[in-house]
Amino acid sequence: MTVARRIAAPLRKIGSLLVSVGLTFLGLTCVTFVIGRVIPIDPVLAIVGDKASNETYERVRLQLGLDQPLLEQYWHYLVKVVHGEFGTSVMTAHPVLDDLLSVFPATLELATLSLVIGVVGGIPLGVYAAVNRGRWQDQLIRFMSLLGYSMPVFWLGLIGLLLFYAKLGWVAGPGRVDVGFDDMVPAVTGLMTIDSLLAGEDEVFWNVLSHLVLPSSILGYLSLAYVARMTRSFMLSQLKQEYILATLAKGLSPFRVVWIHALGNVWVQLVTVIALTFGSLLEGAVLTETVFAWPGLGLYLKNSLFAADLNAVLGGTVLVGVVYIVLNMLSDVVYTLVDPRARGQGT
């Protein structure tokens, strides 16, 4: 009975979510479409170049459907986007979707590992700081997370490379894998750690991991700083609640009071923080990916922006938007798991 309810409630929630997701997606494409029209880049010129004749220009304009009414153009655009057609990238001459599918896993791999570092490190540190509020442990953790906030990531990346790659040789350098290992494992998921394990290439796996460690530690540190800071302030407000006094009056150990009761309530708030952190990591950390020559979404978007490659930019924007929509959806589902009040049924 309760098990059925536990499952049914999230399902109902997912149904209503899908509707809002559809609407959000419509809004997102609307925005990208408008950007594509108002941006002072002539899409025709971008293709034919400024030396083309008037006839060529006109022909391409008709091909692109730019003579049609705006609403009709939007409809065509929407249909294409839904089918995953973002046009061809001028920069790479590949369909934008193919490009995105090849760069996004690189970012996903980096972002996921960074998030794990941020969450696994940040939450305990935040809790520990809150429990020791005002003492040196708290000061130290706050200083560390302030540092994470204020340090320019490209500088951190360069110093990291200089120290751990160039000087100490503990980790591999820029890129996802050594050139020698390039194309050694077939891309199944696009996540090279998993692909290399699937192919049974241990050597490649360790090399990939060695490349991954430094950039993900740096991004992880930034996430950790944020997560720790938020956890600390959420904890402080929970520790003031009456139910904490009640758990103490029951004679519970400080461990249970802090890690089960207070943190159990903090999770509810942390879900949003974690989802947003993951979102900003998945957008592609432009600076980190640039410093580490990481062929991910951030680097791709940066390059296509500089090349005025509109199809690529808009395709990437839609992808980032979709990532956020999915993350929001996921966090709404997770909410119903960690917060009984969000399950929204009566007694």
Binding site: Q241, E242, Y243, L245, A246, T247, L248, A249, K250, G251, L252, S253, I260, H261, G264, N265, W267, V268, V338, D339, P340, R341
Partner: peptide, 25 residues
């Protein structure tokens, strides 16, 4: 004191809306 609390002396607080942990049955 921790061994005494709950076992020898216990305390009922004012408002159950706030004195019970909202995420535990």
């Amino acid at each position: 004191f921790r061994k005494l609390r709950g076992k020898r002396i216990a305390m009922v607080l004012q408002d159950p809306k706030y004195s019970l942990d909202p995420v535990m049955t």
